[in-house]
C-alpha cells in the first residue's frame, strides 16, 4: 500500500469518527426531545411540562376501560407498570386499541390529574404469529402463572 493511499484511508476513518462523535454528542444533547412520548411515571414525577401538549405512552390497564353514556367518550388507565394515569378520549379509537395493548395518547394533563387526549395511536409489538400460536402461548403463560402462584402460597 502506497503512503498516499494509506493517508487517504486514515483521512476517511478520521472523518467518520469525527462526524460520528459530533452526531453522538448532538443526539445526547437532544435526547429528551427525541423521545416520542413520556411514560406515566415521568408524568406523575412532574418531568413532563404541565399544561402543554405532550404524548404519554404505556399499556392500557386490563379492566380499566369505561365507556361514557354518549358512546364516544372513553376513560381508561395507562400504566408503565410503575405508575398509572387516567386518560379520557372522545373519538374513534384505532382497531388495535384493547386492554393490555400499548398505546400513545397526545393531549394535556388536566387539573384533576386526568389526561385529556386529543389523539390516541396504537403501538403494536414486534411479535408476529398465527392466532393459534398466540392462544397456545397465552394458555401456557396462564398455566405457568397459576403454578408459580400455587407454589408461592405453600410454605
Amino acid at each position: 500500500m502506497t503512503p498516499k493511499r494509506r493517508n487517504r484511508i486514515i483521512l476517511i476513518v478520521l472523518m467518520i469518527a469525527g462526524v460520528g462523535i459530533a452526531t453522538g454528542f448532538a443526539l445526547k444533547a437532544f435526547n429528551e426531545n427525541l423521545m416520542f412520548f413520556y411514560q406515566p411515571s415521568q408524568v406523575i414525577a412532574g418531568e413532563a411540562p404541565a399544561g402543554r401538549l405532550i404524548r404519554v405512552g404505556g399499556l392500557v390497564t386490563t379492566g380499566s376501560v369505561q365507556r361514557q353514556p354518549d358512546g364516544l367518550t372513553v376513560q381508561f388507565a395507562l400504566t408503565d407498570n410503575i405508575e398509572t394515569i387516567r386518560i379520557q378520549y372522545t373519538g374513534i379509537l384505532p382497531d388495535l386499541f384493547r386492554e393490555g395493548q400499548g398505546i400513545i395518547a397526545r393531549g394535556r394533563l388536566g387539573d384533576d390529574r386526568i389526561f385529556i387526549a386529543e389523539e390516541v395511536l396504537a403501538k403494536h409489538d414486534e411479535n408476529y404469529m398465527p392466532p393459534e400460536v398466540a392462544d397456545a402461548l397465552k394458555a401456557a403463560h396462564e398455566k405457568g402463572v397459576s403454578e408459580t402462584g400455587a407454589a408461592g402460597t405453600t410454605p
Binding site: 384505532p94 388495535l96 395511536l121 396504537a122
Partner: peptide, 12 residues
C-alpha cells in the same frame, strides 16, 4: 394508518 391510526409521526 390502519394499525397505529396515523399516516405519519415524527418519531425517531
Amino acid at each position: 394508518k390502519p394499525m397505529w391510526g396515523t399516516w405519519w409521526v415524527w418519531d425517531a
